[in-house]
Amino acid sequence: MSAEVAEKQKTTATDWEPKIVALVCNWCTYAGADLAGISRLQYPPNVRLIRLPCSGRINPFYIVKALQHGADGVLVSGCHPGECHYISGNLSARRKFAFLENFLNYIGIEKDRTIFTWISASEGDKFARVIEEVTARVKALGPAEKLVKKLS
């Protein structure tokens, strides 16, 4: 690779901003994001929130499809265990996520591409911190290459 090309890639790498899909629960994280907003907390604008009724509603396929369609990272967030609006949606979701996370890492997808967390409606500051952390982690990984559907 010529020095010129390498230099060009370096600049595009710094200009590059990750696209992060966040699948969030309506009852906690989405309200947490609201709280972060009305509290005027700053967080990176790289995340696209998708509101779902419960983390238990998240089909693991959503995560895989987001990665396939070019998301650089996927954040999944629900209520803390024991605080589910539907009693146990997040508890059964936790098992699905554990299997999926382990499996995706096993086949070689970077660990920080899929991030799981719990944020309650009162944790606006935690929401802002999580988004900062996730954005930093995904930025460190660079653009997603694996599993991405490339149309030729």
Binding site: P81, A98, F116, T117, K126
Partner: peptide, 9 residues
Amino acid sequence: DPEEFILEP
């Protein structure tokens, strides 16, 4: 259930 994979910043 184990939840080591849950991010706690």
